[in-house]
Design a protein around this nucleic acid. Structure first.
Lengths: 138, 138
DNA sequence: CTTCTGATTAGAACAATTATAATACTATTT
DNA sequence: AAATAGTATTATAATTGTTCTAATCAGAAG
């Protein structure tokens, strides 16, 4: 546990984020639960452990994480932001039946629009699919 | 005008949508304004012409259009759904400065995840970029 | 110890969306 | 033409994710 916290703290420091108990706990939750959670899910899972936690803190923390490049914001849901700590290029699949969001591997991808003559500055890229997932399809 | 409406009506029928005045007007707005509007924008632009229009009708109509495959719902914004009538494969670029959403062409794209061994049923695909657009970048 | 800055909180405010119940319209059948 | 059934539309309330704001807290700096 202590050893684990050392890792979490150094992870935060690696991204120039000052560690606080709330930030460590939120980071730990994200790393242990790769389910692309929303703020509500994160909050309700941590509030038992940290009774003084507020939703605003979760929002603030995740905004900070995103700004520092530690997490990505996912806009795959119409009405809520999801968060993903996995940083390598991959896509997401939202199952319309079971509602789960899965990572999907995307090989051979060529979506670098700068190679297509686009000269804007790209900060983030997101590839989303919607449909029926493998488990629900059969 | 009458001629134009004929086109709009046949477009609706092509997608098995029963024409109504509201549906014709909303479709016309989408075809004339390729700005990926949200419900609010569509509503406020049409309410002068059709004073009895309600937002619920706009929501219902766009949900119907999406279900029938006439439009796509875009989740590029955190808290609101945008609508796009263009149906060929392309991406979207949201400028964080001027807030505009542009279409971006994506050539050489290989995002067909079924080719990567994914066996789910894909209903929709979305590729979003965020950053600073060409106009704001220079 | 005091001051200052940034972190955190709690709760109000806001805005997009959905749900619901009532009303109006349209087409069909009698 | 009248009655009926089914759909379209409305108006409003309710819900919900997010942001804002003012107050408090914790820790660092002087």
């Amino acid at each position: 546990m202590i050893d684990n916290n050392v890792n979490l703290v150094s992870k935060l420091k690696e991204f120039s984020i000052k560690p606080s108990i709330q930030r460590i706990e939120i980071l730990e939750y994200l790393m242990d639960n790769r389910i692309h959670p929303n703020v509500e899910t994160i909050y309700s899972n941590l509030v038992d452990k940290m009774p003084t936690l507020s939703k605003a803190t979760v929002y603030n923390t995740l905004d900070l994480f995103a700004k520092k490049g530690l997490t990505n914001r996912l806009y795959i849901e119409p009405n809520e932001v999801r968060y993903d700590i996995r940083k390598d290029a991959h896509g997401h699949f939202k199952c319309e039946k079971c509602k789960k969001i899965e990572d999907v591997e995307i090989y051979n991808i060529e979506t670098d629009i700068s190679k297509n003559g686009y000269n804007g500055i790209i900060h983030a890229e997101e590839i989303n699919y919607r449909g029926i997932c493998e488990a629900c399809a059969k």
